[in-house]
Amino acid sequence: MHHFNKVLLVDDDDATNFLTELAFKNLAIANEIEMASDGLIAYEWIRQNNCPDIIFLDIRMPRMDGFDFLDNITKMNVCKQAKIVMLTSSTRAEDKAKAFTYKGVIDYLEKPLTEKTIQMIANTWFDK
């Protein structure tokens, strides 16, 4: 299974971040796990750091939502190699359709993220 150098979790829900981080730690497949409580914090983090291998991105967040975050990193022309998984509680078909209009988005999943789902993502998108 693929070992991630850096994972970025972008969600304003502390419980979701905790569970996602715990799943990655239980699998022991990430060197670094960074968390941002909204898109603006994630955007600033990306401007100051190397891009992660994968970003798990919520849609509905204060200050800068997931789509605004995607718009901003697209405009900045950064993190083109990072894969993005929308991890959200939104079941709106229009949100899912919009998410896949962004080049880096590889999947659209409902919360919470499980170890099994992480393994599926690693095997499908990284171990080629």
Results as ranks from 00 to 15, higher is better:
H3W: 10
H3N: 14
F4V: 02
F4M: 04
K6S: 11
K6R: 09
K6A: 09
V7F: 06
V7K: 01
L8P: 01
L9Q: 02
V10Q: 10
V10S: 05
V10A: 03
V10F: 08
D11M: 10
D12P: 12
D13S: 06
D13G: 09
A15D: 09
A15G: 07
A15Y: 12
T16C: 08
T16Y: 00
N17I: 00
F18P: 06
F18V: 09
T20G: 02
T20D: 04
T20L: 01
E21C: 03
L22A: 10
A23K: 11
F24I: 03
K25D: 02
N26H: 14
N26G: 13
N26E: 09
L27G: 06
L27D: 00
A28Q: 11
A30S: 12
N31Q: 15
N31Y: 11
N31P: 08
E32F: 10
E32L: 06
I33D: 04
I33Y: 12
E34L: 14
E34M: 13
E34Q: 10
M35K: 11
D38R: 08
D38S: 06
I41M: 05
A42C: 13
A42E: 00
E44C: 07
W45G: 02
W45M: 14
I46Q: 01
I46Y: 04
I46K: 02
R47F: 11
R47N: 14
R47H: 14
N50F: 13
D53R: 00
I55C: 02
I55F: 10
L57T: 05
L57D: 01
L57P: 03
D58Q: 12
I59W: 04
I59A: 05
R60I: 13
R60E: 09
R60V: 12
P62I: 11
P62T: 12
P62M: 08
R63D: 11
R63I: 13
R63V: 13
D65Q: 07
G66I: 03
F67M: 04
F67N: 01
D68K: 14
D68V: 14
D71L: 11
D71G: 03
N72L: 13
I73E: 03
T74N: 03
K75W: 03
K75C: 10
M76D: 07
M76I: 06
M76P: 01
N77Q: 11
N77C: 04
N77F: 05
V78S: 02
C79P: 05
Q81H: 12
A82C: 04
A82I: 00
A82E: 00
I84R: 05
M86L: 09
M86W: 04
L87D: 00
S89E: 06
S90Y: 01
R92Y: 09
A93E: 13
A93W: 06
A93Y: 07
E94P: 06
A99K: 07
A99C: 08
F100T: 15
Y102P: 02
K103S: 15
K103Q: 15
V105C: 14
V105R: 07
V105E: 01
V105W: 12
I106C: 14
I106F: 09
I106A: 08
D107S: 06
D107W: 00
Y108F: 15
L109Q: 08
E110I: 15
E110S: 14
L113K: 12
L113E: 00
T114F: 12
E115C: 11
E115D: 01
K116G: 00
K116C: 03
T117Y: 03
Q119Y: 00
I121M: 04
N123Q: 09
T124P: 07
T124G: 07
T124W: 13
D127R: 15
K128E: 05
K128M: 11
K128H: 13
